[in-house]
Structure formats: structure tokens, C-alpha cells
Design a protein around this nucleic acid. Sequence first.
DNA 1: GGTACAGGGGTTTTT
DNA 2: CCCCTGTACC
Length: 771
Amino acid sequence: MGHYLEDLNEQQRIAVTHIDGPLMIIAGAGSGKTKVLTSRIAHLIASGIKPGQILALTFTTKAAKEMQGRIFKLLPPTVSPVGLFVGTFHSIFCRILKVEGHQLGYPQNFTIYDTDDSKQVIKYIIKELSLSDEEYNPKDLYSRISSLKNMFIQAHDYVKDKELTKIDELAKRPLFYKIYQYYTQYCFRNGALDFDDLLLKTYELFTKHPACRERYQKQFQYVLIDEYQDTNKIQYLITNLIASISRNICVVGDDAQSIYGFRGATIENILKFAKDYPETKIVKLEQNYRSTGHILQTANAVIANNQSKIDKKLWSNNELGDKIKIVQASNEYEEAKIIADKIQEQALRYHYGFNEFAILYRNNRLSRSLEDSLRHKNIPYKIYGGTSFYQRSEVKDFLAYIKFITNKNDVVSLLRIINYPTRGIGLTSINTIQAFAQDKQIPLYECLKMVKEIPDIKPSTAVTITNFINKIDELATIINEVNAYRFTIAVEETFGIAKSEINKIEKNKDATRYENMRELINSTQEFVELRSADDSNAVGITNYLEEVSLLTNEDNDNQPKPTVKLMTIHASKGLEFPVVFIVGVEEGLLPSHYQDSDLEEERRLFYVAITRSKQKLFLSFATSRRNYSGNAMPTLVSRFISEIPEEYLDKSMVGYASSGNYNAPNRVVNSPKFPKKYEPYPKKIETKHTPQLINTIPKSKPIADHIPSPNFTPSSPQLITEGQKIEHQKIGYGTVLKIENPRTQPIALINFEIGGEKRIMLQYAKIRIVQ
DNA sequence: GGTACAGGGGTTTTT
DNA sequence: CCCCTGTACC
């Protein structure tokens, strides 16, 4: 025991060994924050505190998992961390509400609505109130409701507050109060909680039921909160409530890295912590172990321009290292090309692996040109972000079945599946039944059960609906009898959801919907296997749902291939890379000119981006960039660059472009007279046949009259990899561009010489590897 | 009920 | 420019 104290610096050791009383750790970028947090938990346990008395809260599942893993490693094998509460705010409070929610009138099997579901609810309400969705825009309404909830202003409080209602009157939505009320009722009646409710209702539970609150106050003697600068008001309220008796609350954060103000995080929480707890011990972790001197000094110089901050200065024993390279390009394609060239050069000259590079941008749109240039140079890359697996519509379609069977009050899921796959229950019938339900004040599901008694419903439709409901009810009886995988299989066998997608593949040549559904089924199997390995009995579909509803990230990060990583600056927080490129460092982009974005937050964003880098940092900008309408517009270099002292900068690549080394692929593009867009880089064409020949053949027409070569013997699907030349028995020659879903049901994206790109399911196709 | 095309709108993102 | 939504039509 105690080995975890050995490689800590003085400040880190103070933080780790502090046991009782409030503690605030101001942890600069790269100062060993997670190490301190996990070591402190290990230390608490080693000091005799029971794991079950410790509550550690994070924002992301990723952070929670990492913490769990690291704590486990720190503990001696004789000590078990079982019972330790490490998780996201949402998952921990979800668990509490599963047990205690009945006191607020929620069923034990409540459904969790994600952002899409919530917006759907709002859409229904707008329709019901016959409002126009121009003035009452669902997206805006959702974010308004969400931010109110995050400030702990519920519908009944909102109505009473003149200042708040005035805001919405001025925003030309005087009926907002009604929407908020209806929304609250709708969710409640559906037995559903949205993401914000998981926090809000936990707080309400604790304020309304003192006995319940006291139990948790007693249980959680030690509360730890990661990324405290990102907490919003409701999170602040709950954690303070839980810790108000023990006063053993430890928060870790860095005000300089607060970049989520736009979604309700308030930097105030960290700034006023010491006022809330006058006896707070404050520890500042200022030694940076990550970056070289120039990078660190640059970061310090930039952040010094912010007014509101906690005083601290990062320092390091690391060498000064390279200066920060400023790259100027004339447009985004040139910028992308320079970066791709630099990556290649750095990789060759300094033996960096491709996984040691990251390209960061403010805005997802900027990834496009980078993607093109990397592909052009055959540099492997992966773009992080975008819609995650569980948000895909087909996955949600499938999950809606499971959600509805679990909770039959969930109208959102019901309406999603009632005619999917199409079974002849059209909009007219649905509207009639809904009107009936509304009129008679009977839950929609009950109406479906008595559909025969509803006037204006055709007998044949009634039969279809009854069949549907019977199948649902039948499945509901086995929910707790079988594991998640068996249950999912049963749902698929009953309704043929994924199966219904197979027919569409032929038509659309797009198997992704089917694929993702298969993947979902596989994931339930994985879930069961994983949990069984942990000796857990929680392998049912409700357990699976709970996990999946709160897990929106695809953390399939175990990439076999080293890749350059492309992501937004927001997504890069908490990560580090040897070589970092920050692109689009221009006015309007970084800092963003969007509406009322906060300049100091933009600067913190730039600060976060800089401090991701360990050894080399490139800041690039283009003097002209295309806007949404495709027109090249002149740009200005970001003011943030001028905040960096000249002596840290290497400007040898400024004006580099105009020296003629980097010609844009097409210079005519600036002219608006050429509406037809150029291809950034010509697509590679395999030249076995002459291009002319290809051009004479209509592209869309499927070519099935290829005569296989005399030595045609199909290769095993496992042997087919990216980049190979292959011969398809029916389609002909082509190059494998990509293998999708290599683990489950591999599909190859093949660029055929005749017929172009096609997706081929390898397990069925007869394909011979040519080379 | 599914497709095809017009029109609109378009930061950052976790749960 | 690109993607998503809604509507008109088959």
C-alpha cells in the first residue's frame, strides 16, 4: 500500500492525502488531474473508507470508465472496489431514480428520452396546439426548456416569473409557458424522463423527501466531482445538497478549460466554491507534464488575455522544443494539402506514427477538405464525432420496439413503430385513434386494445392493430424471463424489423440500415457476455436499455490501424497528441462570430486546443475560404495569433504558399461564373481499361454480364482487405476501397472499373483477389 | 406508401 | 455546397 504516493509531486500529494473537509483542486492542462483524482480515491479506500461511501461524478462515460479502470489498478489486489460509485451524473442519478422515483410518481421501468425523442414530443404539442413551427421552432423550444431545467426552473415556477415569461414574449412565443407545461405532463404521463429530468427530478426528490435525502447524505460521505468548471446549476445544487452534512466534497477543474457555457455550464460554480465552503483547502496543480516549453508559454500568453480567471501559471521542466509554426494558405484546399504534406514529412523525418497526429477545428465543416487531402495522399485518418450509433434512426427504430414493450405508456416510441415496418396502419387511422384517446382521456395504448370500439376504424385495420398489440403483450411477458440478447432476438423474430430492411438493400444498394440493426442485436449479445463475465445478474433488456440510453458515444476506439485523428476542439478536451494542427485559425471561425458567442470562452477553446499538443504545434489559416454557398470569401487571421509573443513563433510557412510551391488545384474557382464545382482532387482511376471505354458505358446501369476469367476461384472473405484489386464473378474488376463492419458482417466498398462504387456483402459474393 | 424533387437552413456537444 | 424536411405525385 502507498505506492501510489510515490510518483506524485508536492501539490499532487497534498491533494491526494487530504481526506476530510472540502477540497478544490485547480488542475491546469496536463498537470495530472486524473492521476490525482484516482489516487485520492485509492487513498480514501486505503484509509479505511468503504468504497460504497464514495461517490465520484464525471460528465462522460468515457471519463467514468477510465477512472474506474485506473482506480482498480491502483488498489492492492486484496482490496476490492466493489460498491464504489463512479459514473456520470446522469447514470448515477438514473440508478437512484430507478429505486426512488416512485415517490415522485414515476414507474420503476421509466423510459429515458434522448434529445430526438424530446423534440418529437414538442412537435406533437405544437401540432396539438395548432401553432406554426416557424415561430415555435422545436429545436429552440427544446433548448429553452433544457436550459430552464438546468437552472432548476420548472414549468410551474416559470409561469410565475414575469422576467422569464417576458423573454419568451419578446421572442414571439407567448405560448411557450403552455408548451413547457404540456411537455412536462406529456413526459410524465408517458413514464418518461428526459436527460435533464434525471438531474432535476433527483434534486426534486431530495428536496421533497427529506428522509430519502438523508439516506443518501449518509451513504455518500465523500463526493468527488470531475471537470467542475463544466457543471451547471442543477448539478451544483444536487452535489451541494448531498455533501452538505459531511462537507467532504472535492471538486477538480480548470476554469481556463471551461468551454461548455453554451449548454448551461457556469464557470461561477468553480469561482465561488471557496465562498460556499470557507474552510476549503485549495490546491493548484501548475506543473505541466505534457507539453514542451514553447507550447506552454504560448498557452499561458493567450489565456492571460482573459479577465475572469483563477490566478495560476503553468510551468514545466520540459525542454523548450520547437516554436509554434504558423501556416498560411490561400484557401482551404491548399491549407489541407499543406497539412497532409507536413504530416507525411514529419512522419518520415521524425518517425512519427500516424496515430500521433491530430487535426483540430472549431467547426465540423472544416473536416471536408482535410479528408480529401489525406485520402489523396493515402494517409489513414479517422474523423471523430458526428451522429453516434445509438442516434441513428434505424437503431432508434429498433430500440423503440424494446422501449415500448418495456413501457407501454411511451407514446413517442409507440408512434415510431406502429407502422414500421409498414403494416397498413396509416396516418388517418392513427389520427382517429389519437383523437379518440384525447377525447375520452384514455391512454393511447388502452385505446389500441379496444380499437374495435372506436368509430371510423376499418375492421381490417382494427384486426391489424389487435395483432400488433397482442404480439407486444406477448413479448412483454418474457421481459424478465430471458436475457437481453434472447429478448432482442424474440422481438426480431416476432416483427421482422431488420428483415424488412433486407428487401430495401437491393433497391438502394445501401445495407447500412440493415447492418446497423444487426450490429445492435450483436451489441445485446456482447452486453450479456460482458455482464455475465462480471458475475452480474443484470443481463436483462431493461438493464441494457438503461445503459444504452445514457451511452451515446461510439467508443469503438480500438482501431487496429494507426490513424491521424480529426475532431473538433470540443471533442479533443482531455486528450493529448504529439503533433497537433489547429486549422482555420481565422476571425469568425476561432473566435466564432456566431450570434452572441463569448470571446473569453472562444479564447479558452483556443487554449484547450493548444494544450492538447505535446511536442509540435501548427496553427494554420487560409486567406480565403468558401462559405456555405460555395463562394470563396476573403478571411482575416485570428486575433488570437497576435496574442502570442513573436519569439515563440516560426513564421517560415507564412507566405509559403504564394511562393508557388502550393498551387491550388484549380484557380478558376473563385469566379462565381463557374457554378460547377471542381473536384478537389481527381478521383483515382484504375487504368486497366482505357478511360474512354468507361465513359461510353452508362454508369447507373448495373452490369451483370461480366465473364469471369478462366482461372476464377472465389477467395475467402476474410482474406479480402482494403486496397486490393479484385475480380467479382458477375461485376468484374475493381479496387477495394473500404471494409465496413469487419468483425460482424463485412461489407466491402468496391470501386468497379465498370459500374463505379458498390457495396458488396462479402459473405455472399464470389470475389477473387487479383493482387 | 414510397420516391423525387424543391426548399430551407446551416457552431461547438454530453447525457 | 450539403443535408435534412416536407410535399407532391405515382
